[in-house]
Amino acid sequence: MHKDDTPVTARPAGDGPLTGLPQEVDEAWVSVRPDNGNVKRALLLSSPVVVLGAARVGLMMAQGRGTSEGSGSRGLVIGLLAVLFPFVWIGLLGALRWANAGIVLDEGVLTVRNRFNRRVLRAPVSALTGLHQVDLPIQGPHSTRIVITAHQARPVMIDPRTWDARGLAQLWHQLPVPLHDSGFLEWREVKQRFPKLRRPWHHVHYGLFVLLGTVGTLAYIALVVNLPFLL
């Protein structure tokens, strides 16, 4: 990979060099933070409708509806929580990812952690075998992913949209393997090329995922609408 003048975060002083690694790689220290911008924007855009819906359902459950006499303050609280719960859940998952997930290059070792602080990749840069940019059959305009491969390690798929763009650029600049454009791959081709890669179930089985999501959403809406009669 060609070197340029891209700034790189300096590794904290006091760490000694690692033997067997190029000096420039050993001295590099890059930390890539998650980017939850897409989730934040979606929550902010939907918040007025969600707040109004929560207030309506809460008041309906507090005051009663039809033959239901209402449940007072208890019904108000339950109604608010019933509508807000999915959005609070999404917000909590985003916060969990921000707190735990990360990609770090330190002392010549690349480490990737997910939202549950689970280490999904830890490999010395000398063991890396490739950075593969692939276009996948994913619904929507953002179908590009980066697959990181290494000797004796399970491949990891990175969604560039969900990570800090500047940090990723610094990371690709420092790794000793080039970013290779593998073009468009069907999921079966992805499995053939990266047999141990964990493929996102909701993308691989998109039709079934939409069906289950639709049924679950309708069932949840029906539950919320009929809560005044159930209390």
Results as ranks from 00 to 15, higher is better:
63 Q>P: 07
64 G>N: 02
66 G>V: 04
68 S>L: 08
71 S>W: 08
74 R>P: 05
74 R>D: 09
74 R>H: 11
75 G>Q: 04
77 V>S: 00
78 I>Q: 04
78 I>T: 05
79 G>D: 09
79 G>A: 00
80 L>K: 00
81 L>G: 06
84 L>C: 15
86 P>F: 03
87 F>M: 09
88 V>F: 14
89 W>E: 01
90 I>N: 09
91 G>Y: 08
92 L>A: 15
92 L>E: 12
94 G>N: 00
95 A>N: 10
96 L>D: 04
99 A>H: 13
101 A>F: 06
101 A>P: 08
103 I>W: 03
108 G>V: 00
110 L>I: 06
111 T>L: 05
112 V>Y: 00
112 V>R: 01
112 V>M: 11
113 R>G: 04
113 R>W: 04
113 R>Y: 11
117 N>S: 15
119 R>S: 08
122 R>W: 03
123 A>C: 03
128 L>T: 11
130 G>T: 05
130 G>L: 08
132 H>Q: 08
132 H>S: 11
134 V>P: 09
134 V>S: 07
135 D>Q: 14
137 P>K: 01
138 I>N: 11
139 Q>V: 12
140 G>N: 05
143 S>N: 15
148 I>P: 02
149 T>E: 05
149 T>I: 03
150 A>N: 10
150 A>P: 07
150 A>T: 12
153 A>P: 09
157 M>R: 03
160 P>H: 05
161 R>K: 13
162 T>N: 15
165 A>Y: 01
168 L>W: 10
169 A>C: 10
172 W>C: 10
173 H>Y: 13
173 H>D: 13
175 L>K: 01
176 P>L: 08
176 P>S: 07
176 P>G: 10
178 P>F: 06
179 L>H: 12
180 H>V: 15
181 D>I: 05
182 S>R: 13
182 S>C: 14
184 F>I: 03
